[in-house]
Every structure is written in C-alpha cells, then in structure tokens.
C-alpha cells in the first residue's frame, strides 16, 4: 500500500527515448531518400530505426496496468495516444518495406518513394507526439505549453541523426551528418535555455517554481551532468576535435544518446509534480505509507 502522487514509471521515459529516436531515424531516412535518392543514408540505420520503435512500443506496453490488453490503445481515434500508436504501426510498416526492397535489390522506385513519404510524415509524428502529449497537461506546470514539443522534436531528430551516424560507421561508410548534428546540438541548448528562461520569468508562479526545481532540486545533477554536459558539451568537444576519428565520432554519438535518455527521464519525472489543491500536501503527508504497525491486522 502506498499513498503518493501517481507517476509514470521509468519505462515511459525509455519508450519516449526509443520511439522518439526511431521516429527521428525514419524521418531522416525518408527525407534524405526523397532529396538525394537511394544510397543517401545507411540501410542498417533505417532497419535499426524500426527496431527502436518496436522496443519503445514494448516498453510502453509493459508500463500498462494490463499489458495483454495493449491492443485497445488503437481504439479511440479522438485520443493523441491512439494517433501515436497508429503512426508507429504505419511508419514501421513503410520502413520495413523500404528496407526489404533495399536488401533484396528489387527495383520498385515508385513503392520505395511512397514508403519514404510515409516514413517522412509518420516518422515526424512519432518523433513529435510525446512532446505534444506532455504539453497538453495543463495541470503539470513543468510540461504545459508548446515549448516541450520543440524540445522533444529537436531531441528526437538529434538522437535519430546520431544513431544514423553510428550505423554509418558500423557499416564502415563515411558519414556526412557531423555538421547537421553539431547544429542541432547548439539548437537544442538554445531551446532549453529559452524554455527555462520563459518558464522562470513568465507565465505562472507554478511554472516558475517547477523550472527552478529542475535547476536546484534532486534531479538537477542528472540534468546538468548527464544531459547538458555528457549529452551536449562532450559531443561538441569530440566533434570539433581537429583529429576526430571514427572512434571519437562514435563516442560522441553514444554520449548524445545517453544525454537524450537522461533528458527524457528528468522531464518525465519533473512533470509528475501536479498543481496541488489547498491543503492537499498536508493531507497526503498524513496518509499511511504501508509500513505502519496497525496495518498488520489487515494482512
């Protein structure tokens, strides 16, 4: 027995991470195919994108109270989560056909282009919708508003590109994504700075307190060290090293992925602080936690 604020578990952060990264990877693959044609990005990266979305979906299902009823999330077309679920299916299906055509060498450019278009649209949706989902929570001061959408979209695209970068190296191919990744890292830092500035200085006092809690509360260490330093500053340093090698570039990409997961974990945890009603905090503090001796008689 426990009386505390209900929260989404760490598995949701894992889902947001893998699904967002996979969505970003398939969006990038679709975009580059449509712009530059075939062979503009590694097929391995596209395949891994499918796997990542699958892993994210698996974690989302495990997070459910009734995992074996997971199919029901496809049933309400008015809900954003349902749209997210369907888009995951569409983008995975299209990417699978795209990769299969690539691997088998079957020349069907029309079909592959159609798949790339689906990957572009649905991949972008999968990369974006976790941010929209969180931003709609009006009573969660850290999440509410459109800013979180930009944060999640940027992070998904960045991790998608970093994962593609690694896939390129694994296939022993040259990667020309370095400058785009660097640009996105700088953009991500700018977005976060503006997000926290707006939250702290504008809107409501609740949002201000929530943003300050990120910088001074128990999660501040994770945010600064794991996300800002490991996920941004270290990769910038590694990518900008004059004698950058495949190894340093791969380490930089790994750091981006680690930082991105940390960011999602911190954001999910920070949003669990709901705007409380007068007297609610005191009431919650008085409730039993489950280890009280008098509860033994009920066992």
């Amino acid at each position: 027995m426990k009386h505390k604020e209900v929260e989404w578990g760490w598995m949701l952060a894992v889902d947001f991470f893998f699904a967002g990264m996979g969505g970003g990877m398939l969006f990038v693959a679709g975009l580059l195919y449509l712009i530059n044609g075939a062979d503009s990005i590694s097929t391995l990266g596209t395949f891994v994108g499918i796997v990542f979305i699958g892993v994210g979906s698996a974690f989302l299902s495990l997070e459910l109270g009734r995992p074996f009823q997971a199919w029901r999330v496809f049933m309400n077309p008015k809900a954003l989560l349902t749209w997210g679920a369907w888009n995951m299916v569409f983008v995975m299906g299209a990417a699978f056909i795209y990769v299969a055509l690539d691997f088998t060498g079957i020349a069907m450019p029309g079909l592959q282009t159609a798949c790339a278009v689906v990957m572009l649209i649905c991949g972008l949706f999968v990369a974006t919708y976790p941010g929209v989902l969180l931003g709609l929570h009006a009573a969660r001061p850290f999440w509410t508003g459109p800013g979180i959408v930009v944060i999640f979209l940027t992070s998904s695209l960045l991790t998608g590109l970093a994962a593609h970068d690694m896939a390129n190296y694994l296939q022993l191919e040259n990667s020309n994504l370095k400058n785009t990744i660097l640009g996105l890292i700088f953009f991500q830092l700018l977005v976060w700075a503006l997000y926290l500035y707006v939250k702290i200085s504008g809107n409501t006092s609740r949002e201000s307190e929530a943003a300050k809690a990120l910088l001074t509360g128990p999660l501040s260490g994770k945010f600064v060290l794991a996300f800002l330093v490991l996920g941004n500053i270290v990769p910038i340093g590694l990518y900008m090293m004059t004698a950058a090698s495949v190894v340093t570039a791969s380490i930089a990409a790994l750091c981006i992925l680690a930082g991105s997961y940390s960011m999602r974990f911190v954001v999910v945890k920070m949003g669990e602080k709901r705007t409380l009603i007068i007297g609610e905090k005191d009431f919650m503090a008085r409730l039993p936690k489950g280890d009280e001796l008098f509860l033994d008689v009920l066992k």
Partner: peptide, 9 residues
C-alpha cells in the same frame, strides 16, 4: 481500461 495512466496524469 488498460491502465496506461494517461487519464491519471
């Protein structure tokens, strides 16, 4: 209900 807690949040 599948217990996704979307409504709770």
């Amino acid at each position: 209900c599948v217990g996704c807690k979307a409504c709770v949040m």
